[in-house]
């Protein structure tokens, strides 16, 4: 079991010695039991850090923000930034490193193992609480313990864990500078891609009924893109509003830009957006689950990403975020790649 005090001590120490310029971690949020991302820059703040089942955010998003938006205000640009990372989060940092988004020495990874559990799926918790609000959540072995006004509620973690955690193959951040908790790789509670496999048992017609329903519901708020550490492009090919406009840009330039899709949130355009996004994340998505969690209308985005992940694994033997020096999925090939489908 991880003692949160160890994480705080590490953060305090790193900041006190000036070895890092900030620590990105979790602290208690203002909304009930939920943790929220925290940016700690002085040793005294280290005691604010928490580690509990609501630490679901993939904080590597803020490494991207740090490089993208905050570059200019860095006080100590030489020092790295420390980040608390679960297994899936650490794998997205590896993908960012693989893509040379920043350098290994720019980041200090404080790894946390999910050990025998994972993070909470809030949607699964509600039915267990019968309308009560939880004010705190804590790990306890294979259980999660929630504090409510009616007292303590203990649940087996597997009943309320996120699907991805149930299926997680490696709940441990292999890439790290410091790490807390045991490596329990292999503790898997469901077969990898179990939810995907169940979904695929349906016929093509049922699959279309399911997806067309969800494609209709997407409001193209782009929350899934905003929350994803891998969606770092300044110009997003499926969103013409992101194309840069400077004082030099003429009306003609603007008119002549390729607008691949319309901005209206209708089925055909939403499909093109979500399918293109799935393709752009193939081999890069580490199934951190943030896109699906951020979606305000519960579009099951994870299924699309999972489908790509499984194809990459089964057809090309590819594992996202496995090693910093490894090849990227779509910029590499093997002579043995399947080609039977080609006439």
């Amino acid at each position: 079991m991880i003692n949160v005090q160890d994480i705080r001590d590490t953060a305090r120490d790193l900041l006190a010695k000036g070895e890092v310029r900030a620590v990105i971690g979790y602290r208690r949020g203002s909304r009930g039991m939920l943790a929220e991302p925290a940016f700690i820059t002085s040793p005294e703040q280290a005691d604010e850090l928490v580690w509990d089942p609501t630490c679901f955010h993939n904080l590597s998003l803020y490494l991207v923000h740090d490089r993208k938006f905050l570059d200019h205000i860095r006080k100590n640009p030489g020092a790295p930034v420390a980040i608390i990372a679960k297994g899936c989060d650490a794998r997205s940092i590896v993908v960012l490193l693989q893509e040379h988004y920043f350098k290994r020495e720019d980041v200090y990874i404080i790894g946390v193992s999910c050990e025998g559990t994972g993070v909470l799926d809030e949607r699964k918790l509600a039915p267990h609480l019968n309308g009560a609000q939880a004010s705190n959540a804590a790990f306890d072995g294979d259980d999660f313990v929630f504090t409510t006004a009616e007292g303590e509620k203990r649940l087996q973690a597997r009943e309320v864990m996120a699907d991805r955690c149930l299926e997680c193959r490696i709940p441990f951040p292999k890439e790290h500078n410091a790490v807390f908790g045991e490596d329990k790789a292999g503790r898997q509670m469901e077969a990898p891609f179990a939810a995907l496999t169940r979904f695929e048992e349906q016929g093509s017609g049922e699959r279309w009924d399911f997806w067309s329903h969800h494609f209709d519901r997407c409001i193209r708020c782009f929350a899934c893109r905003s929350v994803c550490p891998m969606c770092y492009c300044d110009e997003c090919v499926v969103d013409s509003i992101t194309f840069p406009v400077t004082t030099e840009t003429t009306a003609e330039d603007k008119a002549n830009r390729v607008r691949w899709i319309e901005r209206s949130a209708v089925r055909s355009e939403n499909i093109t957006y979500l399918m293109t996004r799935a393709m752009h994340l193939a081999g890069r998505c580490t199934d951190c689950g943030e896109c699906e969690r951020a979606c305000p209308v519960n579009v099951p985005i994870r299924l699309l990403n999972n489908k790509m992940e499984r194809e990459a694994r089964e057809q090309f033997g590819f594992e996202p975020g496995a090693s910093i020096g490894g090849p990227s999925l779509v910029a590499s090939f093997l002579d043995s790649d399947p080609g039977d489908f080609i006439r």
């Binding site: 699959r207 393709m279 194809e311 790649d337 399947p338 080609i342």
Partner: peptide, 15 residues
């Protein structure tokens, strides 16, 4: 060959 296989699988996946 790789990229087209992926998009082909994805199209089939959504029905």
């Amino acid at each position: 060959r790789r990229k087209m296989q992926l998009i082909m699988e994805l199209l089939e996946f959504i029905g």
